[in-house]
Design a protein around this nucleic acid. Structure first.
Lengths: 191, 191
DNA sequence: GCCCAACGACTGCTTGAGCAACTATAACCG
DNA sequence: CGGTTATAGTTGCTCAAGCAGTCGTTGGGC
């Protein structure tokens, strides 16, 4: 370590003004803050709308992921891998949603250890009631805030960050090969 | 195909390919997924590094926000407004951090209802140990993933989404007038 | 000065999520 | 086959966080 970088803060790049008033007001922190606050803000908006339909964010994610899977079903483990939940978390969400009639468990014919979570007719109906409003919220607070080029740039940047940082979230899906999943999964999934 | 949009999903716009394979694979959902997965991925990376220094994400946010406030202190309520926590949540985080010697409570001289949370010397030291690695993580997984223009575009887009959707989070800070805070706060803060 | 509404912080209770331990099944291997 | 190991899911325990209710304090109206 030479002496052009006396403080032990990593060397800054040149995409921001170096004259910072306070060490803790680092532009990198601000950048992260921007992403996190955007996320928090959207979450809050979405939660409010989802709650009107009696769904929490995780329940909505679960039912959506099931609904777009073949047969409207997914094995518990695959569901856990696709969501931000642990397997025990999935057990409990499915418990609640089964109690509420949105989902059912179905035994897996080939493997008696596995069971599928399946969306019921009532669950599909709930989703159909919820989704239009949800898409509207997305347009209102997210995609509609930017013109097409800016949005494309934003999504492009997000995709790159996601690809770099995200510890995999598409197990059991058809658009990702299982080997690819197995390779990256479980390494950094949970802190 | 005359009846290709018989479901009640709102009509899609034109910044993406309209030929979707599945109603639930709407590009708007994908866009949100991108943002949320980027957030989740970064969170996981950051948490891992913070945990090495014995800090949770909220604790790090708390101590950072205190450290960049005048006097390394903030009233409990203002701290709550700046973080994603409720006031009772702040009470408990500060409890834990006080127990761990990172923070102290200090009575407010003018208002005996209020109390300040103050960073201790030990807390500042912990922060100084943690911060360099944290900034390095940000560069590694976020800002360093993109060239300057792409990053600027990303941040610009995020800023606009944040400004639209975020229900205020800078109370008690000097860069925002208190009236401005009071006006937007509490309206949509918590679901 | 007195009263009452507003405010700041704290506490009891509940909920949701993760980890670790456990059970049942499957796969592998000799 | 019989035994060992790995996998799928569930359950007990713990912990963090929010809501609602409480207590002390403040400040405005009279």
């Amino acid at each position: 370590m030479s002496n052009y970088n006396r403080n032990n803060i990593p060397r800054v790049k040149h995409w921001y003004d170096e004259r910072v008033t306070n060490v803790f007001d680092d532009p990198r922190i601000t950048a992260v803050g921007l992403l996190f606050e955007a996320h928090a803000g959207l979450s809050a908006r979405f939660n409010a709308q989802l709650e009107e339909h009696g769904l929490s964010a995780v329940e909505f994610e679960v039912i959506t992921r099931l609904a777009r899977s073949p047969g409207n079903q997914l094995r518990m483990t695959d569901l856990a891998a696709q969501t931000s939940l642990s397997t025990s978390g999935v057990t409990r969400v499915v418990d609640r949603m089964e109690r509420d009639g949105l989902l059912t468990r179905r035994a897996c014919p080939n493997d008696r250890r596995s069971s599928y979570a399946v969306v019921t007719a009532s669950g599909m109906q709930r989703l159909n009631e919820t989704l239009p409003g949800h898409l509207q919220m997305i347009e209102q607070w997210f995609t509609g805030q930017l013109d097409p080029e800016a949005l494309a740039a934003l999504l492009d940047g997000l995709r790159r960050v996601r690809d770099a940082a995200h510890p995999c979230a598409t197990a059991g899906s058809d658009d990702v090969s299982p080997e690819q999943v197995a390779a990256t999964d479980n390494a950094t999934r949970r802190h």
